[in-house]
């Protein structure tokens, strides 16, 4: 009963995550189209190019995160069925780790692009620290924190997959011994 409650709560969290994912995809597609058509900042071609790059990277990161939602759903279901750490869990966790890695790389690229987007805020008279401070606004900080969280999530997935592999191997040895 407790396993089922846990599984349902985890699945509710995944559904919420999926709803938020859909909302973000819809919102960012709208911004991407705006940036592509040059309606967002029609004044400068440079800004237009950089904003299109930012929006496309956000969309790509969101799309790369999609398979993890499915894997999380499956893992929550597995937990409800009372199945512990086995080879299927290890495979799913490894796939989640790979997706997480892709999201981390894309978010890191996004942070770089966002810093590049803010190139107009600095001039040559500023020191290196001043230039960095001008560019690091709340949006860049948010994406930086997200990239860090994605990197930690990736490492956690890979570590858990290794633990699952070990548990599956031990189980196989136990089965053979019996």
């Amino acid at each position: 009963m407790d396993n089922k409650l846990l599984s349902r709560s985890l699945r509710a969290l995944v559904v919420l995550g999926a709803a938020m994912w859909l909302y973000l995809v819809a919102d960012n597609t709208y911004h991407f189209v705006l940036a592509l058509s040059g309606q967002a900042w029609p004044a400068s071609y440079g800004v237009f190019g950089r904003s299109t790059a930012t929006e496309s990277l956000i969309l790509l990161a969101l799309l790369a995160a999609a398979p993890t939602l499915w894997d999380m759903w499956a893992l929550a279901g597995q937990c409800g069925a009372g199945r512990g750490f086995d080879s299927t869990t290890a495979r799913r966790l490894r796939r989640m780790g790979r997706c997480g890695g892709a999201v981390t790389v894309l978010l890191a690229l996004l942070v770089g692009t966002m810093l590049w987007e803010r190139a107009d805020r600095v001039d040559r008279t500023m020191s290196l620290l001043q230039r960095l401070a001008c560019r690091l606004d709340i949006y860049v900080m948010e994406m930086l924190a997200l990239a860090l969280a994605a990197a930690i999530g990736t490492a956690v997935s890979f570590l858990l997959s290794r633990l699952a592999e070990k548990a599956a191997a031990e189980q196989a040895v136990n089965d053979l011994t019996i």
Binding site: D2, N3, L5, R8, S9, L10, L13
Partner: peptide, 13 residues
């Protein structure tokens, strides 16, 4: 709320 339910289920387990 979902997290609360999950933690409660974990504490029972």
């Amino acid at each position: 709320a979902a997290l609360t339910a999950a933690v409660l289920a974990l504490s029972r387990s």
